[in-house]
């Protein structure tokens, strides 16, 4: 559906986006991740036709951003970072204005506005000036704005930045609801957000793509180890260590300090190729230790992200 080819953008001498290639399929929710200043917003702005790339091209359906930017703008809904809406207008007036520009037929306008206000939870604030709205409400008006023409592709730039945890959950809920039928590209630097909402994650750093795949497949990349944490009650540390040492695949055993003197907490680093939980549990059962806690750490996206985007 969207084909990005050798996309490059220079701001004067500074290269913000460097030779990016990307294919986005219909119906995907794609998360664009990266540290601040990685070029996320620049990529999104070029996708929306706000400015042209220095070189390279973007094809959306059969249109090219260089020749048919007006057709592309019709296909897209875009929410820039922090929803910059006209302060002086009422929410209703603003959405009405957007509906006019988006070419919604006058007889369908009211029903469209109703539907959007229901979807984005705006019914109570339609007649309030935008300047009086809280950040979360503004963000919702921004999403309604982006959804106005029922676009096939929705581009959201940091849709949850600056919101409180409840609002974040609400906005994510809206995105997921919309995402069932639309292609969504969103940028974020919050990893758990990408994990919670996106089918596919693209990490960019210094204008280049450094990782691309589903959150699950990203976690499998690289040769990281599994970590298992266990806590045993009243067990002898040396005995336990000796027991676990004999399991093939455990690379390292370290003791974790706890406040409770009766508790022995261990951190077992295992080779990621085999799942050792079964054999570990069998040993514990055989020895009749009292197991208080047993859990395998999930490989976090945070670690992967940090590894991919750290300096040099």
């Amino acid at each position: 559906m969207i084909r990005v080819e050798n996309l490059t953008k220079y701001y004067n001498e500074f290269c913000a986006v460097d030779q990016i290639n990307l294919h986005i399929r219909k119906g995907e929710i794609l998360g664009l991740l990266g540290p601040n200043g990685a070029g996320k917003t620049t990529v999104l702005r070029m996708l929306t036709g706000f400015f042209l790339p220095t070189s390279g091209d973007i094809h959306i359906k059969e249109y090219s951003i260089r020749e048919d930017s007006l057709d592309i703008k019709r296909l897209l809904g875009y929410l820039p970072e922090s929803a910059p809406l006209y302060h002086s207008m009422l929410v209703y007036d603003y959405l009405d204005y957007v509906a006019n520009i988006r070419g919604i037929r006058p007889d369908k306008k009211i029903s469209r506005l109703r539907k959007l206000s229901e979807l984005c939870g705006l019914s109570g604030i339609m007649h309030r000036p935008i300047s009086e709205l809280s950040k979360g409400l503004k963000q919702r008006v921004g999403i309604a704005h982006a959804m106005m023409s029922d676009p096939e592709i929705l581009i959201l730039d940091e849709p949850t930045s600056g919101l409180d945890p409840n609002q974040i959950v609400e906005i994510r809920e809206i995105i997921r609801r919309i995402g069932k039928e639309k292609t969504i590209i969103l940028s974020t630097h919050i990893l758990s957000e990408a994990e919670a909402t996106c089918d596919r994650v693209v990490i960019i750093n210094k204008g280049k793509i450094v990782a691309d795949g589903s959150t699950e497949s990203l976690k499998l990349t690289g040769n990281r180890d599994n970590v298992i944490n266990i806590s045993l009650l009243n067990a002898d540390e040396n005995e336990v260590k000796k027991e676990f040492d004999s399991i093939d695949g455990i690379k390292e055993i370290s003791t974790v300090n706890t406040d409770d003197p009766e508790m022995l907490s261990l951190r077992l680093t295992c080779r990621s190729t085999d799942d050792l939980r079964r054999s570990i549990y069998r040993r514990i059962k055989l020895k009749d230790w009292i197991l208080m806690e047993f859990h395998q750490e999930r490989k976090s996206l945070e670690n992967i992200f940090r590894e991919l985007t750290k300096e040099n």
Binding site: R45, T48, G49, F50, L70, K73, R74, L76, Y78, P80, S82, P84, L85, Y86, H87, V98, I101, R102, G103, H145
Partner: peptide, 14 residues
């Protein structure tokens, strides 16, 4: 100043 120009130009207008 408020950045709404970005919104304006990403709607189908020239």
């Amino acid at each position: 100043n408020i950045g709404s120009y970005e919104i304006l130009l990403t709607m189908p207008v020239t």
